[in-house]
């Protein structure tokens, strides 16, 4: 297999407004390296509404349409339809949204675009809460996490919504998880999405040091630990049924190693760790069954 290279060209400039250690900013940098200048972005309300810079500035050298919170998928679809109607077929349109705009308020439009198999890439940079509004829980917030709307004495008591499975159920050509801690895998997935027609969704695990109450230098480490503890498996599903595990974790670390470096889990006790470990083990087993069944 040929050695993977990450394109050198920077289409995102360094003068953006992201917090230190923002994985959402890093993810955009990688995506644009792969997608290049023949790309247009639709971005709903999310951290990236701020990161890109206020009018008249922009941190990306591609056209960007800021759109309403729940409309990333459909604004991108509309953009794509408009371009194709004008005979412009070679421009990629990417919807780029946070977890709130994806798992919650934008969910209906995503389901619509996925069901129609609209020819766009949807990327969710998932920092597991409404970070731009100041750390409120979303349906992507994991079990046990503190947020400003799930205080430490009543943390989130429901698991994270399983977005990839729901998208797989739409039988779209390509849906995958990815992580900024595994850039080679991330780049490959962007390339695959770029070369696949129809609706694609990449779910990127994107640590937020500000919202997770951890030092910025732990951003990549926490993302890597999420994979190594099997909290966030890296896999893909083609056409809704062909499961492939991209990063195998043969000897997982205990979940505590991932949880203990983040302030948002500081209130958890040993018993809570056990519950979370049990959940992670069960979900991994389920995923392995699918990988085995459909490989």
């Amino acid at each position: 297999m040929s050695k993977l290279t990450i394109p050198k060209e920077e289409i995102m400039s360094s003068g953006h407004l992201a917090c230190q250690g923002c994985a959402g900013a890093l993810a955009m940098r990688y995506m644009l390296k792969v997608f290049g200048r023949k790309t247009m972005l639709a971005i709903p309300a999310c951290c990236w509404s701020v990161i890109d810079g206020p009018w008249p500035y922009s941190a990306v050298s591609v056209p960007l349409f800021h759109t309403a919170f729940e409309t990333a998928a459909i604004a991108a679809s509309g953009l794509k339809a408009g371009l194709v109607a004008q005979g412009i077929d070679d421009v990629n349109v990417v919807a780029w949204a946070g977890d709130g705009g994806t798992f919650d308020i934008g969910f209906q439009a995503i389901s619509g675009a996925a069901e129609r198999n609209d020819n766009i890439l949807y990327v969710v940079y998932d920092n597991e809460a409404y970070m731009n509004t100041g750390i409120q829980r979303s349906s992507a917030t994991p079990y046990g996490a503190w947020t400003t709307t799930t205080p430490a004495n009543h943390p989130k008591d429901r698991p994270k919504k399983d977005l990839v499975e729901i998208l797989a159920a739409h039988r779209i050509p390509f849906v995958a998880t990815a992580s900024v801690a595994y850039p080679e895998d991330l780049i490959k997935k962007f390339e695959k999405a770029k070369n696949t027609k129809g609706f694609k969704l990449i779910h990127i695990f994107a640590p937020c040091p500000t919202g997770w109450k951890m030092p910025p230098e732990l951003s990549i480490e926490s993302a890597r630990l999420a994979v190594q503890t099997r909290v966030f498996p890296i896999y893909e599903v083609e056409n809704g049924v062909h499961y492939k595990l991209n990063i195998n974790v043969k000897n997982p670390k205990p979940v505590g190693e991932y949880l203990k470096i983040q302030g948002r889990f500081r209130h958890l006790k040993e018993d809570d760790y056990k519950v979370i470990q049990g959940n992670v083990d069960r979900e991994w087993k389920l995923l392995m069954r699918k990988v085995e069944t459909f490989k």
Binding site: F65, A75, G78, L83, Q86, A109, S111, R116
Partner: peptide
């Protein structure tokens, strides 16, 4: 585009119009 709601009908129309159509 046969959308799944009127909210999306206008959002799609907005996107298409912004592209120059």
């Amino acid at each position: 585009t046969k959308v799944e709601s009127e909210h999306s009908a206008m959002a799609s129309t907005v996107g298409s119009s912004a592209s120059g159509a």
